[in-house]
Design a protein around this nucleic acid. Structure first.
Lengths: 126, 126
DNA sequence: CCTCTATGTTGACGAACTTCGAAGCAGGAT
DNA sequence: ATCCTGCTTCGAAGTTCGTCAACATAGAGG
């Protein structure tokens, strides 16, 4: 299932290794890589999907719990989930009849780190 | 100059007022608003522009310093800068012959906060 | 085996995006 | 006023994206 070519956000982010977006000019290859992840977040449907998955109590959501929240066909939801998966933001597994999705926090952590300025702790909101 | 309809990232983010992306399901309107900002970041050219602007010593960059870094026409760079500006990520001002751009850190701070999980400080990288 | 349900994949189409050249505008210099 | 330079806006071409209907697949249960 999770045999998609993921976007791997190289060395960086929360582990405090490599330059953040806001401190050092971004190289072209790295920009391309990063843009894929941000592009995945650049759609309202995908943002809501990610949010629904991330905020789920047990950490896992079945597709059948996601689809009814939208006025979209199931294939469209499936398509958006695939893009989020390819961006390395979520992963999934089939369990019997259903497929469960969960957040990959490393990726969001790295994005948050990249967008954080040196002096700014940027504690989680709420 | 800065009379663009900015995307205003409502109440949220670093000020710890409203739910982060990862803790509470996102409302539709808010998702649309947020998606515009992420979409602005979803292009390699714009990411590099933002990075170049943000990491500049004095905090300001002239367009003429940005353009040579790309294999793109000046109108194209101008277009991307406009999108970043409409997303509320940067602003600009004309001074004599040149136009200077600078980062609006409130917006990146808010994004970082939204992507940060409750337990995770997400200190700036590098 | 066959059928039913839950998901993913394919192909197609309109909308949106990226890019360019050409034209427009604002200021400084002549 | 006239020209030149720096930048933005306009209009068009090519590409990518979001969406759906139709089809394919995986597993459960007869």
């Amino acid at each position: 299932m999770s045999k998609q070519e993921l976007v791997v956000l190289g060395q960086d982010g929360a582990d405090g290794c490599c330059p953040g977006l806001l401190t050092t000019p971004l190289g072209e290859e790295r920009a391309v890589e990063l843009a894929k992840v941000f592009k995945a977040l650049g759609d309202p449907v995908r943002l809501r999907l990610l949010s629904m998955i991330a905020s789920r109590e047990g950490g896992e959501v079945c597709v059948c719990d996601l689809t009814p929240a939208f006025d979209l066909s199931q294939p469209t939801i499936s398509h958006h989930l695939k893009l989020l998966r390819q961006a390395g933001l979520i992963d999934c597994e089939r369990r019997g009849t259903w497929v469960y999705y969960w957040l990959l926090p490393e990726t969001t952590d790295k994005l948050a780190g990249l967008l954080t300025r040196p002096g700014q702790p940027a504690e989680a909101s709420s």
